[in-house]
């Protein structure tokens, strides 16, 4: 399956992926996939959360500074799905791991199970995760937004 893969050597740490990810689940869009009403989508009090996060590693000098993006790996052995006590997390036949927000109770067992730290606690205390948001676009919003191909969406062996 196609997944989001990271190239930390070229990540600028610009956080554009996080920004785009936060809005990736907004459904009210025009034919080109553009959000119709950004005022409505952006709520200053409870700002939407990103499912991808930039990590920063500061070395002893500026050249050693490293950034990279982390989002769900959609593992073949999905510890989060196996550990989910409610059945809210599931892996589709396409390999994508999705979450049913009506079923999630925010017990955080998935946080304890995930080897990569990819679950995010949403404003309502249920879990958020990358679902590859390919329903609006062929490419996930984070990858589309990346100016330097530090994340790519492709098949790898």
């Amino acid at each position: 399956m196609k997944r989001v893969y990271v190239n930390e050597d070229v990540c600028l740490g610009c956080h554009l992926c996080e920004y785009e990810c936060a809005f990736s689940t907004v459904k009210d869009r025009d034919d080109t996939g553009k959000i119709n009403n950004m005022f409505k989508a952006f709520n200053r009090d409870v700002s939407p959360k990103s499912k991808i996060r930039i990590e920063e590693l500061n070395g002893d000098n500026p050249e050693e500074k490293i950034n990279f993006a982390v989002s769900c790996r959609h593992c073949e052995t999905p510890y989060c799905v196996m550990g989910c006590i409610t059945g809210a997390l599931s892996q589709g036949e396409d390999g994508v791991i999705r979450i049913n927000h009506d079923k999630c109770i925010g017990c955080r067992t998935c946080i304890v199970m995930c080897p990569y730290g990819c679950l995010v606690i949403n404003n309502d205390k249920t879990m958020l995760k990358c679902e590859l948001c390919t329903e609006h676009n062929e490419t996930p919003a984070c990858v589309k937004a990346c100016p330097n191909r530090a994340i790519v969406y492709e098949e790898r062996e």
Partner: peptide, 20 residues
């Protein structure tokens, strides 16, 4: 803080740049 940046570069590559 639990982060992947506390792992070595090759380890990170295996985690984030390879299918598993």
């Amino acid at each position: 803080e639990p982060t992947l940046s506390s792992f070595g570069k090759q380890d990170r590559f295996n985690k984030l740049s390879r299918p598993h």
